[in-house]
């Protein structure tokens, strides 16, 4: 059986989640490996969510937020950008493959981009293989 990765998507309510909705209503095809969690803003994402996701067996984490400057709360994603950049560096220095974590800015009108990003990210995770470093062994 081929490897089907589990990918956690954390999407901001106003842009990426709506964008995902648009991708759905326009009947765009993208892999089913993504499990989306909706949050109100990308700055609501506690970095521990990401560490925890990897521990609970996620093979990749994709974070979606509004384009900088378009945040529904004006400045939320600008804080999130700095914070998630640090998260990325920490994951990298601890030895996890940097390709397993990705942040994308996807607006509500970019259904196409959402489908593209998910397709590309899934392919990337498939090539990296299962994530075993952080996963809690049962």
């Amino acid at each position: 059986m081929s490897f089907e990765p589990k990918i956690l998507g954390i999407a901001c309510n106003w842009c990426t989640y709506t964008g995902a909705d648009l991708a759905g209503t326009t009947r765009l095809q993208y892999p089913q490996n993504l499990r989306v969690v909706r949050v109100m803003c990308s700055s609501r994402i506690n970095p521990s969510f990401i560490f925890r996701a990897f521990q609970l067996g996620a093979d990749g984490v994709l974070i979606g937020g509004c384009h900088p400057g378009d945040c529904h709360y004006n400045t939320g994603n600008l804080y999130a950008r700095r914070r998630l950049a640090v998260t990325k560096k920490i994951l990298e220095f601890s030895g996890l493959e940097p390709g397993r974590f990705r942040v994308e800015w996807i607006s509500a009108s970019e259904g196409n981009k959402f489908a593209e990003v998910v397709t590309e990210f899934t392919a990337q995770i498939k090539s990296l293989g299962p994530q075993t470093k952080f996963k809690i062994s049962q």
Binding site: P68, R81, R82
Partner: peptide, 15 residues
């Protein structure tokens, strides 16, 4: 402190 602050022109390259 750096993480409770931001600049509008922070580069996306940091991600």
């Amino acid at each position: 402190p750096a993480l409770v602050n931001f600049r509008v022109d922070d580069s996306d390259k940091i991600l």
